[in-house]
Design a binder for these strands. Sequence first.
DNA 1: AATAAGTGCGTAAACGTTTACTCAAATTAT
DNA 2: ATAATTTGAGTAAACGTTTACGCACTTATT
Lengths: 330, 330
Amino acid sequence: MAITIKDIANKAGISAASVSRILTNRGRFSEETAHRVRELANEMGYFKNQSAADLSQKSSRVVGVLVPITHTNFADEIIKGMQSKAYELGYELLIAFVETTNQQQIKTVKSLLSRQLLAVVMLAIDIDDTVLAVLKSADVKLLSVSNQLNNDIPSISSDNYAMMHTIVDYLYDHGHRQMALIGSSDPDPIVAILRRRGFIDALTDHGISYNPDFIWGVDMTYQTGLDAIKKFGLPLPFTAVIGSADIISIGLLNGALDAGISVPSNLSIVTVDGTELTQLTRPILTATQQNFAKMGELAISNIANESLSSHSVTFTDITLIPAGTVTTIV
Amino acid sequence: MAITIKDIANKAGISAASVSRILTNRGRFSEETAHRVRELANEMGYFKNQSAADLSQKSSRVVGVLVPITHTNFADEIIKGMQSKAYELGYELLIAFVETTNQQQIKTVKSLLSRQLLAVVMLAIDIDDTVLAVLKSADVKLLSVSNQLNNDIPSISSDNYAMMHTIVDYLYDHGHRQMALIGSSDPDPIVAILRRRGFIDALTDHGISYNPDFIWGVDMTYQTGLDAIKKFGLPLPFTAVIGSADIISIGLLNGALDAGISVPSNLSIVTVDGTELTQLTRPILTATQQNFAKMGELAISNIANESLSSHSVTFTDITLIPAGTVTTIV
DNA sequence: AATAAGTGCGTAAACGTTTACTCAAATTAT
DNA sequence: ATAATTTGAGTAAACGTTTACGCACTTATT
């Protein structure tokens, strides 16, 4: 029923090939006919059948994006960045939300891959080996953003190791000597390992021997933040705590408030991510910020740029934004 | 480069048509060859070329979803519902984030439409007439979820009018007589109109003459919530305020706290939406909850079900969840 | 004026899958 | 044992677009 280039060709009295050349702006054609064709296309309400186009040109300009459905809200920023770059370069984004369950993941991924994709971007996602195997068996570029999976797969993420140094330095300068790190305790995400290592090394640099008990957490959720305060009990054995994600830090803050601990006078909190969520609490969370939008843009540029696409990139422009949850200890 | 059904057919010593029949589970074939083919497909790492399939079967099972990039976080719930139903019924979701700017919208919509879509779902989006015209010119079903656009387009949303009654009744029962409603003041979204009307009518039902000044707001943002408190100044001329979205209500709460107004003793707040955001504040927000996941599921069922797809549906199962931001006035 | 280069456009094949039509072989019914 | 039905699978066309190739015609070069 839909209008095709053949319909346009008939009406214009030329061949479909010419219409195609004009509409894709490839090959040779006169500006005169081009004008007529473009007008006709508009009038007749023509929409390119992208499936047919994809089939014809073997390579596609579609980038699949896997986003965790447990919405870590910095994902929006990254997607925004990706989308703006994608439009600039003429790529198309195909966004799919994936559950944490394996089965759903495989189904989603397979359905994604059945569009011939140029690349698949995994956004802050930990993917299990069976899903990864499926992805690898397909002929697409893989890229992990805001997470590192393993050395095989190029990634774009912040320098998590350096980030921890920045935070620990800041807290140290404010007199803190006992600090805890709350986040996922899974060994899986390399990000978590890097953060832990950065945390420990930073403490060591300041001559503080770290207490393994002070690194804790089940997952990257609000509940983990709440539970952390309960777990350590009163009086808290540390004066400052670092939340590995904004939502965790809000859990920490509320857990502290619920336990009658006043923030920051009795507990300092620094959060990683620094999304708008940090603005919603009272006091406002002191946070490190990463340039998420830029990470998204780079992801697409990286995919577009054949030569670069095999490297991993770590962003080092991390800034700490002082706000209301850190106090100075004398 | 990729494996096609022809490759499988060759290896199995049968025709491509047979492979297609087996893999799509249509038509006639023996379980014996089927088994062999399915194994081969797996071994060889076959992925269906969905573009080719779409081209061949004229109708598609792809539903496009337009999501506002200014992430109203209940959208996640709705998407979750849509996705689960979509998988159940064998549909595919194509999610696109749209900017608020017109130009971006048109570009995104056009690129969406170039996949032959079965339907386009607009998620809590206000769309301008030019974009709407583009959508209508394409041969797709349209459905608006969690928003109503105009009578042309079927929609699935909560009964916003009844919701306001529920809230006003609740506040009235708790002794409140002066109430304000903060949300978008745009006349555009019909939702906003319905809420305002529901608010006014509910007040009238209780014999309260409403004050037009007490309905205010610029848009559905955190800032509007913050600004509302500043605008009315101290002492606030009302004892209770209704935030038209969770993020607005958090703005109201923080605005109040920043102004030294204690909640709920000096100001009661009830919020509409009731997402997890309500749990993040102290005190926790008293909220009405809508069944967002069910709305998403219904959206897909509705699209699947030819006969129903022209009706609008309003959800009436709205519950008010008491929490920490409403006090009783004596 | 003869040749070379460039321009505009048509022809036809290709992309991978689906499906209506066949038809032979196997199975069942009479 | 013959006729009727069912079963499994092959053939070929179709979906809408792109693109290599070729041809006629125009413009530039000597």
